[in-house]
């Protein structure tokens, strides 16, 4: 039973990690490529870490929960790097497929920038 659960988690994690990188290699413009690694990889590594936690808790030495720390850390940092990468791409005016927002995307890129410059300091 536990063995099956572990096998399922490991396989699901590896498949999602693979799909994330596949998206990185396969999709056609930078902004769509960004979606693969940030999402698929998060769940992929997340389920691998849960598998590791279950495995080492089962091994003895009591409960092994420090894997949660890496999962938590990845869940906090992956969106931040994705946001920064998207901002850098907009700043560099990378070619983009599909419909845009109402304004031209690159025009305000040189304006005051909140994430790096806070007005109240």
């Amino acid at each position: 039973m536990l063995d099956t659960l572990l096998a399922f988690l490991v396989l699901a994690g590896a498949i999602f990690t693979f799909i994330g990188s596949l998206g990185l290699a396969r999709l056609r413009d930078f902004y769509t490529r960004l979606h693969g690694p940030t999402k698929a990889t998060t769940l992929g590594v997340g389920s691998l870490l849960i598998a590791s936690s279950v495995y080492f808790s089962h091994q003895g030495d009591g409960l092994s929960l420090h894997e949660i720390l890496v999962t938590l850390f990845l869940f906090i940092t992956a969106p931040v790097s994705a946001h920064l990468l998207a901002k850098a791409a907009l700043h560099l005016n990378l070619p983009r497929l599909g419909k845009g927002a109402d304004q031209e995307a690159g025009t305000s890129a040189t304006g005051p920038d909140i994430a790096t410059e806070r007005p109240d300091r």
Binding site: L27, Y31, T32, A40, K99, A101, A105
Partner: peptide, 24 residues
């Protein structure tokens, strides 16, 4: 998050030409 991963995985495995990326 779990749902998002399944959705994005399906989009990646599908045909890239059919995607409709949009800035909102």
């Amino acid at each position: 998050i779990v749902l998002a991963n399944l959705v994005v995985a399906r989009r990646i495995l599908g045909r890239p030409e059919k995607l409709r990326p949009t800035l909102v």
